[in-house]
Amino acid sequence: MPLRDALFRPVRAGNAFEETVERLMQAIRLGVVPPGERLPAERELATRLGVSRVTLREAIRSLQDAGIVESRRGRYGGTFVNAELPASLPGRRVEVPELLDALTLRTVLETGAAECAAGRSLGPGERRNLRARLAECSSAELAEYRRKDSRLHLAIAESTGSASLTGAIADVRMRVNELLERIPLLPPNLAHSNDQHELVVTRILDGDAEGARRAMAEHLDGTASLLRGFLS
């Protein structure tokens, strides 16, 4: 299978925006669509990725805002990879094994925490805390989003009643936050994350352990797609 076909294959439905960004970034980073060249036409690309043109446009707009691509009008228009891509994100280079290690550990810990929290009989204070952290994250401004997002995830960990698990999640969250600081905040992703957060918390409060695990796994997959796309 040609590399271009392998990269522009259909994405999964659960995190369509995030995976579309990941596929586009992979194609650009691997030189499949090098600087100065045009991405496939919107109709073709949406069909190959198996996403709506609205989702594709949101992904392309996010890459435009990050200075990675530009749109040109006219007969020879389209979406082009910028001739000069943004400089590497600040800090030391992230090696792929390091990235995958952090993402794997986070998935194991946080899906387990969601399942565990849903399996407990939560008290009124614990339930109020989850709802309050969810509301804070949903209404957070861009500048505060990652801090409020972290607080919600830690509140879920606290709901397990395990100080050791909460500490382990706090540690891995520090690692993941260092990685997140290297990529742009993408409003469509934040809106999607807020919807996923609400589903995770609802499953926990309903006592649906398996549903909470699945909802958390899908949420973390979306973040992982963006990190792999921008950093690996």
Score class of each variant (00 low, 15 high):
139 S>Q: 15
128 R>A: 13
68 I>A: 04
90 P>G: 04
85 L>A: 11
88 S>R: 10
94 V>C: 06
50 G>V: 12
134 L>P: 03
96 V>F: 14
54 V>Q: 08
111 T>H: 01
123 G>S: 14
58 E>P: 00
86 P>I: 08
84 E>H: 10
103 L>I: 06
84 E>L: 11
55 T>A: 00
60 I>Q: 06
122 L>H: 04
80 F>G: 02
95 E>Y: 08
137 C>F: 15
131 R>C: 03
49 L>A: 01
141 E>H: 02
117 A>W: 02
89 L>D: 09
118 A>F: 04
66 A>K: 02
63 L>E: 06
134 L>V: 11
75 R>A: 10
87 A>W: 05
74 G>A: 06
130 L>I: 08
77 G>I: 13
106 R>A: 01
56 L>E: 08
115 E>A: 12
65 D>L: 14
80 F>C: 01
139 S>G: 13
87 A>T: 10
69 V>D: 12
138 S>H: 05
135 A>Y: 10
96 V>A: 09
76 Y>R: 13
66 A>V: 12
119 G>P: 13
114 A>W: 00
51 V>H: 03
101 D>Y: 14
119 G>I: 09
123 G>N: 14
106 R>W: 02
127 R>I: 15
116 C>D: 12
66 A>T: 11
126 E>S: 05
107 T>E: 13
123 G>C: 14
124 P>E: 05
58 E>K: 04
110 E>D: 00
109 L>V: 03
72 R>M: 06
136 E>D: 13
57 R>M: 10
69 V>E: 12
59 A>W: 00
117 A>V: 02
94 V>Y: 05
61 R>M: 06
92 R>I: 13
137 C>D: 09
71 S>L: 11
49 L>C: 03
140 A>P: 06
141 E>T: 09
113 A>I: 02
69 V>W: 10
60 I>P: 01
100 L>G: 06
133 R>S: 11
88 S>V: 07
83 A>E: 15
104 T>F: 09
109 L>E: 00
50 G>N: 10
